[in-house]
Amino acid sequence: MTDPSRSPSAGLRIASIAGVPVYLGWSWFALAAVITVVVGSGAGAVGYVIGLVYAVVLLLAVLAHEGAHALMARRLGLVVHRVVADFLGGHTAFDSRALTPGRAAAVAAAGPLTNLLLALVGWLGAQAVQGTMAGLVLGGIGWVNLLLALFNLLPALPLDGGQILESLVWGVTGRRASGLLVAGWAGRVLAVLIVLWAVGLPLVQGRTPDLIRIVWAGFIASVIWRGAGQAIASSQARAALEGRTIDQVARPVTVIPGSLPVGSLGPTPGIPLVREGGRYLLLGSPGEGVTVPPDTPVSALGTALPEGAVVESAPGDELVPALTTMQSSRSSVVVLTDGGQPWAIAIADDLNTLLGS
């Protein structure tokens, strides 16, 4: 599952894929315990060992799945922050500002396709060594990967299939908000169907619903419902931004070197923006009654913007990249660049005023 918005979660760093850190979330150990107990219950020590093996096989399948997301995203030029395996399966966090419908679909499809490939390898291997312990293990690897792939390909957010559906609608309509809305409601429908499968189907067949199935189905349905709800809310937020461009809030800047003496700073056509090395600073007032020597560099009066508070956003571009950058950098001011050159800043208060109008 790809998730651009997640913040770093606690966990144990176990590896890296092409420089991307891979974490094992602490909650995964709870999942491993549940799988071990459920599979091994009533089968003695051997059953618990088999259950633990299944948990490890699932972990490897999830890491292969998420690693494929990460590698595809990197190949398409996206910045990948981390890969995490946890109780909910896993997620790959990356910078989504450069996404297009095609890129989003490719990143989403990479995970399930990798699992399908591993399922085929496991099945072929099991056929080659039938009747042995190795054949049993390879068969288990094949089934785990097949089920993981098929489940994730269901066309409903927050699953990978839902992200592919979102991309298709986005590509056809030209509106990502429409893609999020359609795939989000598909997710809610899927959540209801899962509950009906666990509770309604047995009742229709005259059977008592299985308690473990109800618990698992309820848990999975709740996760999907929540993810689908977030997609629908994101769709509504994006729809509110349509027709608005960065020009409506951009405040032009004049870039000045940080070494420029205060005494040499005269009137500028735009807001003075100090560039010093790889960082940007906004000039502030020295305070009432404070005298600043004229040879003081202007950088001494500047307030540094947080790292990452810079976004490539040319005149006429939509507002979403600037908003996303404010959220990710936790800065109320972001520098707007065009071709890598600063031309303006965007301020959160201006955005709030515009969106509230």
Rank of each mutant, 00 (worst) to 15 (best):
D3K: 03
P4R: 13
I14H: 14
A15D: 15
P21T: 06
A33P: 06
A33E: 13
T36K: 04
V37T: 14
G40M: 11
A43C: 12
A45F: 13
V46C: 01
V46I: 14
L52N: 08
Y54V: 07
V56T: 05
V62Y: 05
L63C: 09
L63P: 05
A64M: 07
H65Y: 01
G67W: 05
M72P: 03
R74F: 02
V84K: 03
D95I: 10
R97W: 09
L99R: 00
A108G: 08
L118A: 04
L120K: 04
G122Y: 06
G122T: 00
G125A: 14
A126Y: 01
M133A: 15
V137G: 05
N152E: 14
L154F: 11
A156W: 00
G162V: 05
G162I: 12
Q163F: 01
L165P: 04
L168Q: 05
R176V: 02
L180E: 00
A183L: 02
V189T: 07
L193D: 11
L193Y: 11
V195E: 02
V195N: 05
V199S: 11
P202Q: 13
L203S: 02
L203K: 03
Q205L: 13
L211N: 00
I212M: 12
R213D: 15
V215M: 13
W216P: 07
G218E: 01
G218M: 00
F219D: 04
I220Q: 11
V223R: 09
I224W: 02
R226H: 11
I232M: 09
A233R: 11
Q236V: 09
A237K: 09
A239S: 15
L241P: 06
R251P: 01
T254G: 10
L265G: 12
G266E: 14
P267A: 07
P269A: 10
P269M: 08
L273V: 09
V274D: 01
Y280T: 02
L281G: 07
V290P: 07
P297C: 10
V298E: 10
A304G: 12
L305I: 08
P321I: 10
P321M: 15
S328K: 14
R330F: 01
S332G: 06
V335A: 07
Q341I: 08
P342R: 05
P342N: 04
A344C: 08
A346G: 13
D349N: 08
G356S: 14
